[in-house]
Nucleic acid binder design. Structure first.
Length: 570
RNA sequence: CGGGGAGUGGCGCAGUUUGGCAGCGCGCUACGUUCGGGACGUAGAGGCCCCGGGUUCAAAUCCCGGCUCCCCGACCA
């Protein structure tokens, strides 16, 4: 591509609305153009890069036993009512009516349709396993789009669905997909980390996310800082070893006056006890029911874990009205003597004794509360937020925290859709059984954005070669001189003939500085400078975008081989 | 949806407090000079000041209503 013919231009100044680096550089380099909140046009540079990512995905999906299909974006609302996901998606669902006023959905994902297809085509265990996939535009009316392509409302996703006869089959398909994902990220030059993830409301046993480390990421993961065990999980799901506390002989329960004391911090200050010697009480509204949750004072409630444990759709902190209606005394509540409300206790409470707890009346607390002597709770679960520095549950090494961007997510769905939508097969013995499904997603545009988040400097993008729009940026200087422009044009043609993708800055009137800055901004792996000065010695300068290496002076005749050598080095 | 910020030539902004010719820098066009890290001169083109209403002799500016975008929180690839 000749720079002078490109439909886009680079911007000299930073676009005002972009704060995250990938957003800023994609706008500045002319890769994308925003049309509405969370809706973008992909312009030539971005589109070439996206197509490279897609090509890698296709190869790996095909190699892992996938087969590409194409399902419709436009789908009847009926189908979403049948699966119950009209409700589940709620306002996130883009909807419209057709000319006969029939409600339609712009699909956010394709479990429903793939189930219909499976229902029509899978009748026997002989028809399994199958892994159809597609790369297609999805529509989700996100409450808030952000960060350029990081989170948008219209986006391209590779979505795959596995269909198996039994749990072993699902495990095999799942592992094949996981391996395909590892290959995809590796080939894109991106060190994504596979972490355990919350599987969400619909459930299924396993779920993993692929997180690309980046400081601007929306997700936090905890991973084992040790070398051997490899434990890594999204903070929403992560476990750590909770600091054990002394389990002393139970002392007699005793009420103390604590005027004005509401928070754990105030309580510890007032009584001179450590947080781990107190129990915190938190009240939630879970699908409308007010529930009481208690956890050791030095730990925080993980609302995702709690949501999953309760198997509810909506969890939020209870309002003052709800708290009062349930007879709870905010600031002085505890499980001691509490009746008529569902209570959940974090298992950390077991690791300690003689707690300070609320007295369930204003301005009073109890000393030396012990489980189960003073309160006996049936529902005990791990609902605590794991923390950096806690020992790994597998090997005991301290956990480390890492921010990152979710660039893929895989789920073992189980039989939810098969049973809801009627996808059954006959096994060897003639039993009618639901097909076991898994689903596997990669956000293609987000992967590009994440790649830039992770690979940039103050001057612009530093593209990993496999997903760069072009491999080489030819910068022609002194192109006003016919001798130079002829050589540069010829080299450009030669490299394309040799299969090397080039962006050729053939602008005659731009200064060298402008061209260098644009090359840095766009960030192709290699920059070749063709100038009067270099041609005098029959060489061109080749310089990698990454690193501080000095340019290589390559004789004109050896340019192709030098490029190949330098690209394979990266 | 809650909280914060912003809408003025293609881009970045000033002007709004105190109403009075719509400005600056970059970019763009033409000509000339320059030519290895965002050159210079001269002459130009380009605006629904987000939209609708109101106040006023007069509104980018004041009042009322609405829309859009960005950022922070609840969701997700």
């Amino acid at each position: 591509m000749r720079f002078s013919r490109l439909i886009t231009k680079t911007m000299r100044r930073d676009p005002a609305e972009a704060e995250t680096p990938s957003h800023r550089y994609m706008l500045k380099s002319g890769m994308v153009f925003q049309v509405a909140a969370g809706v973008y046009s992909y312009l030539p540079l971005a589109w070439r890069s996206l197509r490279k990512i897609e090509a890698i995905i296709r190869e790996e999906m095909d190699a892992a036993g996938g087969q590409e299909v194409r399902m419709p974006v436009l789908q009847p609302m009926e189908l979403w009512e049948e699966s119950g996901r009209k409700q589940a998606f709620g306002d996130n669902l883009f909807t419209l009516n057709d000319r006969r006023r029939r409600p339609m959905v712009m699909a956010p994902t394709h479990e429903e349709v793939i189930s219909l297809i499976a229902k029509a085509h899978v009748q026997s265990y002989r028809d399994l396993p199958r892994i159809p996939y597609q790369i297609q535009t999805k529509f989700r009316d996100e409450p808030r789009s952000r960060g350029g392509l990081i989170r948008v409302r219209e986006f391209d996703m590779k979505d795959a669905y596995s269909m198996d006869a039994d749990a072993d089959g699902l495990d095999a398909s799942y592992e094949a997909m996981a391996q395909a994902y590892r290959n995809i990220y590796r080939r894109c030059g991106l060190p994504a980390v596979m972490v355990e993830a919350d599987s969400g409301a619909i459930g299924g046993r396993d779920s993993h996310e692929f997180i690309l480390p980046a400081s601007t990421g929306e997700d936090t993961i905890l991973r084992c800082g040790g070398t051997g065990c490899g434990y890594a999980a999204n903070l929403e799901k992560a476990q750590g070893v909770k600091p054990p506390q002394p389990v002393d002989e139970p002392l007699p329960l005793k009420e103390v006056s604590t005027p004005g004391v509401k928070t754990i911090a105030e309580l510890c200050e007032f009584l001179g006890v450590p947080e781990s010697r107190t129990l915190k009480a938190v009240f939630y509204s879970a699908d409308g029911e007010t529930v009481f949750v208690t956890i050791r004072g030095d730990l925080e409630v993980n609302e995702v874990k709690l949501t999953t444990y309760l198997k509810v759709k909506e969890l939020r902190l209870a309002s003052e009205e709800e708290t009062e209606a349930a007879g709870l005394v905010a600031g002085s509540a505890s499980a001691v003597g509490l009746k008529g409300i569902r209570c959940i206790m974090d298992d950390s409470v077991m690791l300690g004794s003689n707690y300070v707890v609320g007295a369930n009346k204003p301005d009073a607390h109890l000393l030396n509360a012990n489980h189960p002597r003073d309160f006996h709770l049936e529902e005990v679960a791990d609902i605590a937020l794991a923390e950096e520095g806690q020992p790994c549950v597998l090997c005991g090494e301290p956990l480390e925290a890492l921010r990152g961007i979710e660039v893929g997510h895989i789920f073992k769905l189980g039989t939810f859709y098969s049973e809801t939508l009627g996808v059954y097969y006959l096994d060897r013995k003639g039993n009618r059984l639901p097909v076991i499904m898994g689903c596997y997603g990669i956000g293609v545009g987000r992967l590009l954005a994440a790649a830039i988040e992770q690979n940039h400097d103050e001057n612009g993008i530093i593209f990993p070669a496999p997903i760069a729009p072009y491999q080489v940026h030819i910068v022609g200087l002194n192109l006003g001189k016919e001798t130079v422009s002829k050589e540069a044009d010829a080299l450009y043609q030669r490299l394309w003939d040799a299969g090397i993708e080039c962006l050729y800055d053939d602008r005659v009137d731009e200064s060298a500085g402008v061209k260098f800055n644009d090359a840095d901004l766009i960030g192709l792996p290699l920059r070749i400078v063709v100038s009067q000065r270099s041609l005098r010695n029959n060489v061109v300068e080749i310089k990698p975008r990454a690193g501080e290496d000095k340019p290589v002076l390559a004789p004109l005749a050896d340019v192709e081989s030098t490029i190949h050598q330098m690209l394979s080095h990266n």
